[in-house]
Amino acid sequence: MNDVKNMADESMLFTVSPSPHLRHGDTTRSIMTDVIIALIPAFIWGVICFGLRALAVVALSVGSAIFFEYGIQKILKKNITIRDGSASLTGLLLGLSLPTSVPYFMPVVGSFFAIVIVKQLFGGIGKNFMNPALAARVFLFAWPGEMIRFTEPFKRLGFFASNKAIDAISTATPLGSLKEGVLPDIAWGDLIIGRSGGSIGEVSSVLLIVGGLYLLVRKVISWHIPVSFIGTVALLAAIFPQNEDTVAFIFSQLFAGGLILGAFFMATDYVTSPITNKGKLIFGAGCGMIVIFIRYFGGYPEGVSFAILIMNSLVYYIDKITKPRAFGKSRRGAKHG
């Protein structure tokens, strides 16, 4: 026990800082870690489904994302932020949204684009206006052949599979057949469990939803974006079905393709989504409408990435129009009174 009477000198040591003097335990790092944890089940499923090559693609993408973040921050003499986990998460999301069979240079180029161009050149974490992983994925469509070649589930690829071996097991994705107006030839159960072709992390809707629920419980994300996004897709598919079996059509629209991954993990990215709950609902609904539009009328079977990126660019305006009415202000009080 210190004698207070003799504390005269110690009083000089008091830290003086502005209130509040308490802080919630969550940090950027803990939030990023939570999202990574939520993605792990779907990632493991991807490796089980598509083989060790899937692991290699994701590892390359994560590793190079961290490397580029470190490198560019070193070059620009900025504070190194690889410990906040956001670069790892971007790498993970990018890797999970790629087909297993992409050549190994692609995840590296993608990570470079995501981290250096989209994120750091715009000022680093919190400043980018597009989701880095998605922007990189879309950038990689510079190699369209590689981006739309999917392999059959459980025909696992080794680390160094030849092009010929890949071609031998490539398959149409459920969304691809949906584009042709044909319901995918796959049992419902298999579709939601993820026994189908697709990007590494997008196939298992069940595991993605489990991860999404984890984020909801941990209050990392709120329900607004996933519900309005997925809900809008379901609603539009119900109103404008392209197959006589409406229920099966809606079901395939929801669970074939990247909708679940996109709605829970990409569209909810804090930096590139609106900050108010009302704004989040608008954002999700906008994403859903664009997805259906692209899937119905676009030249490409999938539209989730494009939809989210387009809505990303509107976030600032959505924030602006959904500014809450401040306590004690009249509705019109926001204008100069």
């Binding site: 026990m1 207070v4 504390m7 005269a8 009083s11 040591l13 800082s17 209130s19 509040p20």
Partner: peptide, 29 residues
């Protein structure tokens, strides 16, 4: 503080008021 038997740990912050809105102080006297 003396009336509360002094301190048991090295002090770092002295706050007058609550932890959310109180002000950090530097002068024990």
């Amino acid at each position: 503080i003396s009336f509360c038997d002094g301190l048991k740990k090295d002090p770092r912050k002295l706050i007058c008021g609550g932890p959310m809105m109180g002000t950090a102080q530097s002068d024990l006297d």
